[in-house]
Design a protein around this nucleic acid. Structure first.
Lengths: 343, 343
DNA sequence: CTGTTAGCGCCTTCAA
DNA sequence: TTGAAGGCGCTAACAG
């Protein structure tokens, strides 16, 4: 009669369950469930009782049971191409700050700039029935695209802007950023302008394209001055490519680097070789990493709103998950040219 | 009679279930379950059938259902104090490489060097009944400690070595690293040696202590030359503290920085102010970040085995999760002094 | 506003 | 080696 549970044979976790909370509060389990979830249809008095019971027992929901029963998790999956780049860390942190207080768990997937790995992660994480998907850019496999669409899970795309304007996205125009870089360098009277990009993800390519277009418009484009490599971006690589380029094209007088770390490497080698920056060569970076402002000379760079992108994307996600539509699906957060000593 | 499911009223996900796989394979659900999990007691022939059925239906287990039924997840929680430091990224990547192929999901928690936040994360993640815990260092709240112990979940501690030798840990002696730094600088004939540390986590403090001890032994210790700040480590901060120290103590002839980024900032300011490195001041960093080898002058640093720590810790975890004991619970992976141009 | 009933999809226990 | 029965902890439906 008393408490015909845990006789033996039980596989229980040992942790308190909603049933026990309900019993202690003197209500039915479902009422306890509703009270704890903040569902409106519970008397304030009961809510209080249940809350207290939960605290007393040190109750924590079992997410597995919840997910199973509701066919919905509380997790939001974020897929980024890299964690070694501070860029995405800043974005992730911002996402956390928005989503965690609302009770969502942020699940991070790193696909190492590999489309196949992204598809793989997506397939895996789909099993968790995430409430939302926060993805980076638009460049992915066809089956990944299909999975996303078929899943019907709310999705926000970060970093780039959808040219079709059909998808929810938060970012800035990578193309314009490249153009701005070129215009800045041209405004300094430079004639032999180069672009050095590594990693060659979609965004690096778009920036390169913007740069190229602006040069073409100005009649200054020379395909020989475009250095692209799929190798991962790094300080060492930047120095290497810089020296190679100056060796083969000594007349280069300005370089736009697709990422700050490449530019850092260039500044180091310039210092080592006595190449005057910006007198002989202007150097412009991208992303404005924290170290850039302290370089010798201080690196001019295009500062990107990575923290704001994470925040806004997460906020959009909140809207979508609440079942609302987003009035303005394309959010352009722009970028800022920081002119320092290197240009 | 036909298929009395999905009549209406169903709350199903729409995704194929183990039941459907079993039906297609012509076996009972439990056999299908066993086959898919690789439990030995299933005939090879049946396993093959089930596998094919699963592929055909594009079946993916429902982790929530699995976790609920087995009272066990397949996730391993990793808690790190920061993601902005490449150090932990390298470790995390290594952990992923070991654990993911074995079917474990790695859940990352960042506690921003806050003991309270770590405790919070721990409490939250415990609800997921993780199979394992990979934690950073030994400095945590008493209740966090109790939760870990009470949970009975296998745990491996990374980065430091347990002086008590009672816990499973993979790392190196932070104390010895500090001593080594001092000895190196002393061997270069330096007499006025300083330590600059930021963030002041346990490991930074331990390195400082090792450094101090070595100086004391050599009769060279001066407490005025110990600069400690709780501010987060950064390039900018390093430059700032460097200039301040040289301003107040112009006779300093060697500085050990608790983190490479601080040292980077110092090198930049030295360059800007015409302070000769290493002639006037030797500069030694810690962690050997990728950029360090490219600095001007190239930064001497103590290289830490962060990738190996992640790998070994994950391997230990695999052993523990398999129910085995670890013969040697304390794994000292050491560190390496990289002597370059700055010392 | 509250409770009853009935599963979510899988795995454990036990028996064959 | 395989299967039947039952339940993990929670929540959706519907009724009161």
């Amino acid at each position: 009669m008393t408490a015909p549970k845990n006789d033996k044979n039980t596989r229980t976790t040992g942790r308190p369950t909603l049933n026990e909370v309900a019993r202690l509060a003197g209500v039915s389990p479902i009422t306890a469930s509703r009270a704890l979830r903040g569902v409106s249809t519970v008397a304030a008095e009961l809510v209080e009782k249940v809350r207290q019971a939960a605290v007393e027992l040190n109750y924590v929901v079992n997410p597995a049971a919840r997910a199973l029963a509701s066919a919905q998790s509380h997790s939001v999956v974020v897929l980024v191409p890299s964690l070694s780049n501070l860029l995405f860390i800043d974005t992730l942190e911002a996402i956390h700050r928005v989503l965690r207080p609302k009770g969502f768990e942020v699940v991070i997937g790193n696909y190492h700039y590999s489309r196949d790995e992204e598809e793989d992660l997506l397939r895996n994480y789909m099993a968790y029935q995430p409430r939302g998907l926060l993805l980076t850019g638009f460049d992915r496999t066809e089956s990944a695209r299909r999975m996303i669409e078929a899943s019907n899970i709310p999705c926000v795309y970060m970093m780039e802007l959808d040219p079709g304007a059909g998808l929810n996205c938060v970012g800035f125009s990578q193309l314009k950023a490249g153009e701005t870089a070129a215009e800045h360098l041209i405004s300094k009277g430079r004639k032999r302008l180069a672009y050095i990009g590594a990693q060659l993800d979609q965004r690096t390519l778009l920036r390169g394209e913007g740069f190229r277009r602006a040069l073409q418009n100005a009649g200054l484009y020379d395909p020989d001055l475009e250095v692209l490599t799929p190798r991962p971006s790094s300080v060492g690589l930047g120095g290497e490519l810089f020296l190679q380029l100056l060796d083969s094209h000594p007349d280069v007088d300005a370089i736009f680097f697709g990422n700050d770390d490449l530019a850092h490497g260039a500044l180091f080698e310039a210092l080592r070789c006595g190449i005057k920056i910006p007198e002989q060569v202007s150097v412009l970076g991208f992303n404005d990493l924290p170290a850039s402002a302290h370089m010798v000379p201080r690196l001019s760079s295009i500062s990107t709103p990575r923290e704001a992108i994470g925040r806004r994307a997460a906020e959009q996600m909140l809207t979508l998950m609440a079942g609302n539509r987003i009035a303005q699906p394309v959010v352009d957060l722009g970028f800022e040219l920081k002119v320092r000593e290197s240009t």
